[in-house]
Design a protein around this nucleic acid. Structure first.
Lengths: 223, 223
DNA sequence: CGTTGTGAAGAGCTTCACAGCG
DNA sequence: CGCTGTGAAGCTCTTCACAACG
C-alpha cells in the first residue's frame, strides 16, 4: 500500500514536515512551477535544505542532481509515502458546532479523505440530515463501519463525552482516531490517536511572545 | 508578566506538553482531585514521569516531596508560565465558514483569550454582525488594533489570501499570528507565527497506520 | 557546474538513577 | 517512607560538509 520506510525508523517530525512540503508544493504546482531545488523549497517552508533532502531520502531518491525536484512527481511521491494516494473513508462522531463545520467542509476529498457517516447520541439530532449525511445512533456504529468500509473516526463531542465516543469507535473496529475534543482518551495499544487542539498553538504563541519580550528587555536595559 | 524561564532555554516540546498537562489537570480539578503525583499525571498524559518533573522544574518548584502536586496551584502556575494568567485580546481576519465558527465558539475566554474584532475584505460582509461583532474593513485595521489593544491575529482566509491578511496584521503592529489558512506566510523576524492544520494530524494517522500494518505483516508472514 | 544524497559531527531532548527533602 | 528535583547518560533528530552524479 505505502512502499514507505526502507524499514528504517522515520522521525515523527519528518512526517509533519512532509505535510508542509506538500502544502507548499501544491501552491507551486498551481503556479505551474515544474522544478524546485531543496534550497528554494527550504526557504518557502522555513527549514534547513539538508533537512528536506534527508526527509525525502527516507522514502527514495526523488531528485535529479544538478537540477532539483520535479514538482508534480514529488507531490505524488510524498502522497504515496504518507499513504494518501487514495481515499480514506471517515466517520464523524459528535454533531455539534464543530462537527457540523467539518461535515460541511469541502476540502477533505482533495486531501484524500471522505466523511461517509455522522453519529450523535442526542435523540433530537438522530435522523437529521447534515451536508447530505443522516445523523445516526452510535449504537449501530459497528454495522455501519463494516458496510461503509470506514477506517478513521473523528471525535468532535464535548470533552466529557470523548472517552465514550472513543469506546464506540474501538468497539466498531476502527483503528485510527482524530480527537478534536479537549480531553485525553485511553485506548488499547493497537489504536492510533492524534489530538487536534488549536489552543496548544495559542499557548505556544503567548509563550514565545513573553520570552521574546523578556529577552528584548534584557538587551535594552531601562534608560 | 510571565516569571518564566530562569533564563534557560525551554524546549518547544515542553510548551506543547504543558498545554496537555493543563487539559488533564483541569479535568482533575473538576472532579475535585486536590493532589496528584507525577507518576499518575504521566499515565493520564501518556508521557514519562521524569519528563513531567523536568518540564515543571524549568519554571520553579511546584511540588511537595513525598506528596505530589497540588492541582489548583499547579494549574495556576502553568498558566503563569505560559503567559495565560490574563486575557489576551484577539482579532480575526477572514469571516468565512471557519471564521464564523471561531467567532461563535464560547470556549476562548475560559482559556484566556477574547476575540474583540473581526475583519473581512468582502464588501458584502463588511457591516454584518457575527456573534455580536461588526465585520470591519482590513484597511482600518491599524486604528482598531490600537484602540482595542489587540495583540494576536487569527487568519481564517482562503489560502491564497493568507499572505495579504498577514501583511495587514503586521502593518497594524500585531506581533502574534495564528494561521488557519492552508498556506505558509512570510513575515519579518520579530513576528511570531503558529500554523494550525488538522490535515497534518490526519497524515500522521494514515502514516502511522501504514507503517504499523506493514510491520504486523512482517511479523506474521503469509500462511 | 550545480544540486542531490549521505556519513559523520553536533545539538537538543528524554530517560535514568538517585540524592534531597517533607 | 515516598515523591520531587536534577546531574549525567543515552538517544534521537538536525546540521554540516562533501562525494557522487546528471
Amino acid at each position: 500500500m505505502c512502499p514507505a520506510s526502507k524499514s528504517k525508523h522515520i522521525p515523527r517530525a519528518t512526517i509533519q514536515r512532509l505535510a508542509i512540503y506538500l502544502q507548499v508544493l501544491d501552491a507551486l504546482d498551481n503556479e505551474n512551477v515544474e522544478v524546485i531545488s531543496s534550497e528554494r523549497l527550504a526557504a518557502a517552508c522555513d527549514v534547513n535544505p539538508s533537512q528536506i533532502r534527508k526527509d525525502l531520502a527516507y522514502f527514495g531518491e526523488f531528485g535529479v542532481r544538478g537540477v532539483g525536484y520535479n514538482v508534480p512527481k514529488l507531490i505524488q511521491s510524498i502522497k504515496e509515502s504518507l499513504g494518501t494516494d487514495r481515499i480514506w473513508r471517515v466517520a464523524l462522531i459528535g454533531v455539534g458546532n464543530l462537527g457540523r463545520s467539518l461535515l460541511r467542509y469541502q476540502g477533505f476529498l482533495k486531501r484524500g479523505f471522505q466523511i461517509v457517516a455522522a453519529f450523535d447520541c442526542d435523540p433530537f439530532k438522530i435522523g437529521d440530515t447534515v451536508a447530505g449525511l443522516e445523523v445516526m445512533c452510535p449504537r449501530r456504529m459497528k454495522e455501519h463501519v463494516r458496510d461503509l468500509h470506514i477506517e478513521i473516526g473523528i471525535i468532535t463531542t464535548p470533552a466529557e463525552r470523548a472517552q465514550r465516543a472513543a469506546n464506540h469507535l474501538i468497539e466498531a473496529d476502527i483503528r485510527c482516531i482524530l480527537n478534536f475534543a479537549a480531553a485525553r482518551i485511553q485506548v488499547p495499544e493497537h489504536i492510533y490517536v492524534e489530538y487536534v487542539d488549536f489552543f496548544h498553538h495559542m499557548y505556544a504563541l503567548t509563550f514565545k511572545y513573553c520570552i521574546g519580550e523578556a529577552q528584548r528587555a534584557e538587551k535594552t536595559p531601562s534608560s
